[in-house]
Design a protein around this nucleic acid. Structure first.
Lengths: 222, 222
DNA sequence: TTGCCTATTGGTCGAGCATCCAATAGCGTT
DNA sequence: AACGCTATTGGATGCTCGACCAATAGGCAA
């Protein structure tokens, strides 16, 4: 065994690296266990450092929580709708978005949104991040819709409104998924896609077929 | 002034009365400040009793939280869609429901749903209550839809599915209202009604007109 | 190699929480 | 008017949390 008072080894890292490490760990905790589980002590334990170190980088705990959510949300957005995407692919981008947002992986993110929206009530700093991310998601979807409109595939009355409607439905499905996700009718599951089709002037079922195709190729029925 | 150690007056009430008093106060706190503000100390303070009394009636705090939510939610449902309603009034009942759920008063309830859904993640007892209330709301809307179908005013493919869709949209609007309720396009605000019209086979705008009428008569433009 | 800067430690402090329990006093019953 | 049941008190206990700070040691620069 080790001697009783073995002084633990210290690992000294660059502030940037350590900060990134902390935020990354916090983001993971946020996605898997919830924002309220992001605690100085908890993050420190996961990283095998002392709590004081965390509060050295984040003197106010709330700042870390906001940073964790912001990172998780913007990473997820980049995964669902990459900022850099091939031109002339608006329809595919949208289909990919719906396919991924129906996947199991997105459930965590959906739950995190719920978590963040609620917690925003008590944490002003987090509230700002949530608003910023909400705008980012809305804007990127609007971008895709505008591209599709320019390409002549979409015919929305107002791309910005359509984007909001899509997000509203997606959020609604997300919060309901929290309680009774079991044996849900297909009409409910597909509601986001249906809304998009209607709002974009697509023939009923067009987008849905593409989404199911994208979902199948993303997770090949293993 | 009163003598230094004036023994405070004790008020002794019947268990039923006291219990109701506690739950009622907790429900109010839930609606105005959030479920996590329901603490033994806080409720005791509001009621001018000692914390020990609260935990006498609710040995486990979580039970009180669940009870508070359940009361608030079922009271609100009764207000939005009374269990006893005139026959042949399905359309009016639905219009009244939408009118009230767009009102400012319902914002608190919407926020409470968000709160409860999130907190359910950590509190099994609360989770059961949330599931029960969700079912109650869904079932009562389904009831109205079935009545309307029997009356020949609604033509849904499946009343139960339509009810879920309505709730999903309403919830989606609710969570979004938490962050950016300002300058929202009418198309978004009216989305729940629009969805209902489509799902129930109503002519576009029919229900919306009724809802606006009901809203106007409920709050007469002061 | 030596020395300095600062990342990191290790402990402390107070606040807020649920929970438990013996003692007390309100109030209906007799 | 006296009694007994129990609603209610008052205090204690132990937990987790954020915040604070002086002391320490890692590693880059000289």
């Amino acid at each position: 065994m080790s001697p009783p008072s073995a002084p633990p080894k210290r690992v000294r890292k660059s502030p940037e690296a350590r900060r990134a490490e902390i935020v990354g760990r916090a983001a993971t905790i946020a996605l898997t266990e919830g924002l309220e589980c992001i605690t100085m002590r908890r993050v420190a334990e996961d990283l095998a450092v002392r709590p004081g170190l965390i509060s050295h980088y984040f003197p106010v705990a709330e700042e870390l929580v906001a940073e964790a959510f912001g990172t998780a949300a913007s990473d997820e957005l980049e995964e669902l709708i990459p900022a850099e995407r091939p031109i002339g692919s608006a329809l595919d981008s949208l289909a990919r978005f719906f396919a991924l947002s129906a996947g199991a992986r997105y459930d965590d993110m959906s739950r995190l949104w719920l978590n963040a929206r609620h917690l925003s009530r008590f944490r002003p700093v987090l509230a700002e991040r949530v608003a910023a991310q909400e705008a980012a998601w809305r804007d990127r979807i609007t971008e895709v819709l505008r591209e599709g409109t320019a390409e002549g595939v979409f015919r929305p009355e107002d791309p910005a409104v359509a984007a909001i409607l899509i997000l509203v439905v997606l959020d609604g499905l997300g919060v309901h998924a929290n309680t009774d996700r079991s044996n849900r009718p297909a009409a409910v599951t597909n509601m986001a896609v249906t809304t998009a089709e209607r709002e974009l002037g697509l023939a009923s079922g067009t987008l849905l077929a593409l989404v199911e195709g994208a979902a199948a190729s993303a997770a090949p029925t293993d």
